[in-house]
């Protein structure tokens, strides 16, 4: 294929992305800092901030890992001030821990509700509110219709939404920009031979990305930022395929 055709195709791809609402990064600004190579998986190589992301997590441990990872993302989203809303079905999130992931826990408003229906109502209302930096909702189910409602709300307000899904039995298609799966990995000690725990390490999987390339990375949260670890990790036991 001649070079001019390549050029035309890439231009068309850019156009389509723009029509779909993905803006190319403004001069100098490169979306979320620190996500490193994970960001290359997204269209234009930028983490889509004004969109809804879903994170699947089955066990309480995975929920904790997902909460930690999302909090790390929030720290970048909330850098310019702003507040965020954390809507959950159970009140188990421990505010002081969020500080370790770089956000001020007092800027997070927690809501603990009883029903999925209420959570989704609150998340939708909150996503329409331009004054928020991000909205996190913990639900058990999210179907296509509901996810599209959330996506439509986000397109007006450009608030970032995260939906943590507990029931992972059937995962249908959703209108979310990306589907994540975060699992804990055994940590590496700070230095060779030292006892104790190293920084938290996750297997970050992008199961689905709209207009992007899904992939899998090993990441750590170290000294207040994400670090992508190069070394492949063998521990693959107990892995479930959610794709």
């Amino acid at each position: 294929m001649p070079a001019s055709q390549h050029h035309i195709i890439s231009k068309l791809q850019q156009d389509i992305l723009r029509w779909e609402g993905y803006k190319p990064p403004a001069g100098g600004k490169t979306g979320l800092g620190g996500l490193g190579r994970v960001e290359e998986a997204f269209p234009n190589g930028v983490f889509p901030a004004g969109a809804v992301h879903e994170v699947v997590c089955a066990t309480p441990g995975e929920v904790a890992a997902a909460a930690g990872f999302v909090t790390g993302l929030l720290s970048a989203l909330m850098q310019e001030g702003g507040a965020c809303l954390w809507v959950g079905l159970s009140q188990t999130l421990f505010a002081p821990a969020l500080k370790a992931f770089g956000i001020e826990p007092d800027r997070v408003i927690f809501l603990n509700l009883l029903r999925d229906k209420d959570v989704l109502w609150v998340v939708e209302e909150a996503l329409k509110c331009k004054g928020l930096a991000a909205v996190i909702g913990e639900v058990s189910e999210l179907d296509f219709k509901l996810s599209r409602r959330l996506q439509l709300a986000v397109e007006q307000s450009h608030v970032t939404g995260f939906v943590l899904r507990n029931a992972t039995k059937k995962l249908g298609a959703t209108a979310c920009a990306a589907r994540w799966h975060i699992r804990s990995l055994p940590s590496q000690p700070v230095a060779e031979g030292l006892p104790g725990l190293g920084p938290p390490r996750w297997q970050v999987e992008l199961l689905k990305v709209r207009n992007g390339r899904p992939g899998s990375w090993v990441m750590e949260w170290d000294a207040g930022k994400f670090v992508t670890v190069d070394k492949p990790v063998e521990a693959e036991e107990g892995r479930q395929n959610y794709a």
Binding site: E80, G81, A83, R107, I109, E125, C129, G131
Partner: peptide, 17 residues
């Protein structure tokens, strides 16, 4: 800007909730 917790829209949202 990003007014955070002092935002009127946020206060109104919380009232609705």
């Amino acid at each position: 800007g990003n007014p955070g917790l002092a935002d009127t829209a946020l206060a109104e949202l919380l009232d609705r909730i």
